[in-house]
Design a protein around this nucleic acid. Sequence first.
RNA 1: CGGGGCGUAACUCAGUUUGGUAGAGUGCUUGCUUUGGGAGCAAGAUGCCGCAGGUUCAAGUCCUGUCGCCCCGACCA
Length: 481
Amino acid sequence: MAKDNKKMVDAITSMDEDFAKWYTDICKKAELTEYTSVKGCMVIRPYGYAIWENIQRILDGMFKATGHENVCMPMFIPESLLQKEKDHVEGFAPEVAWVTHGGSEKLEDRLCVRPTSETLFCEHYSNIIHSYRDLPKLYNQWVSVVRWEKTTRPFLRSREFLWQEGHTIHATAEEAIAETERMLNVYAQFCEESLAMPVVKGRKTESDKFAGAVSTYAIEALMHDGKALQAGTSHYFGDGFAKAFDIMYTDKDNKKVYPHQTSWGVTTRLIGAVIMTHGDNNGLVLPPAVAPIQAVIVPIQQFKEGVLEKANEVAEALKAAGIRVKVDDSDNSPGWKFAEYEMKGVPVRIEIGPKDIEQNQCVIVTRHNREKSFVSLEGLAETVKTKLKEVHDGLYQAALENRERRTYSCVTMDEITEALEKNGDGFIKAMWCGEEACEDEVKEKTGVGSRCIPFDQEQLSDKCVCCGKPAKYMVYWGKAY
RNA sequence: CGGGGCGUAACUCAGUUUGGUAGAGUGCUUGCUUUGGGAGCAAGAUGCCGCAGGUUCAAGUCCUGUCGCCCCGACCA
């Protein structure tokens, strides 16, 4: 644990003082994003984009390992195509951006800028799928989409955002459901192993489903301030889209039947999740797996002979061992560099000065707890790898503890209100009868909405927390981003 | 879309009440000294005061309109 919680960087608002401002301060000061002249459209700067590239690289590997292929759909959807699935268009129409002109000419049919690409995949599938031999298709694309949000925040909710959307089509419902669950597990595994972020896996309630889905699964994470963040979703569509788009194939018995579909996605919101899960009052704290710089080397008295040479030599050795390393040989003071890389969340810092070189050692400091140790330059790459692992594990443990500390089991409405008042925002575990009216009432009376029906069910009581009728599920409730 | 706040130098802001030569700190540039937790001194550069009208001898300041951004709600990844 941090032995010194003193805020080193007065440029960043303290998270206890104003969590929202703390968040946006980090986005700007750690050079992740800049605002542009279009509301909700942000520049993702090199340091922020490098995090996304790491996320992409790891996830893409996981998708390929599970048999998926990357494709690329156009960014425009004709209005007529968007209209084909009724629930889908109702869900998305309020937030789509429209292209009405090509050059100076008005378009006959306006084009929607994709808010998601189900309709495009469906149109394509209807062209290429004719036989059971054409199935399954396991597709994914890395693109950006546009949703005209009213309230925007960097990474958490922007009008254009980067994501991947997987779209698969299968011969049977069982296969499609298995795919939906498999990809949710891939997301959960990624969040835990690469982002050091524990998540709750579960199913969304009917009212919270994706527009056009039979069922929606999600992973939910709890942020530092006790608010929930949906970190990824996976949808099972049944054959609803296939029917709407007239996708049919001939099965082994020479019968024409409808295939079953899924889609699943994660977005640059994951970067927001990382910020709000691991960040502290000194700035960002990055999980080593996605950190653009895993170790920064700060030379001390770098003008003295041999110091920079040694720093570069150490850097080369670490690079050779596959560690992402940077030597900061700028003429800023060491203190400035310490603060700078802490703000940027670099997991490990290495200090090398004349005194160290004399003793063939260096100082190594881990970002999450700021613990300092003197270690030999001999076998440093292995030491650094151990430290990176320590940072990852430390982050995961702290995030898990935060979530556990902020998860409250409640059997009555009063208990919910009390728990929130006494301990602050967090996850509420409570039983539910399955009626939408109760879901709404819980939200209205206590302020927490249903997050998901977790796969790991517990029987907290026999009765719905709201109406007292027999309970069907235990639900995680919370305030959401 | 509702409620609140804010647009003046690269950044944070003062100046607006009471109209009268455009300000400070930080950052930036150059030089010297420094370097184990955001260094010191000296010299320098930087402004359509969000935009458009209006009132006035005179507008950053007053009036009208407009655009944008931030925060909080409702909705969403």
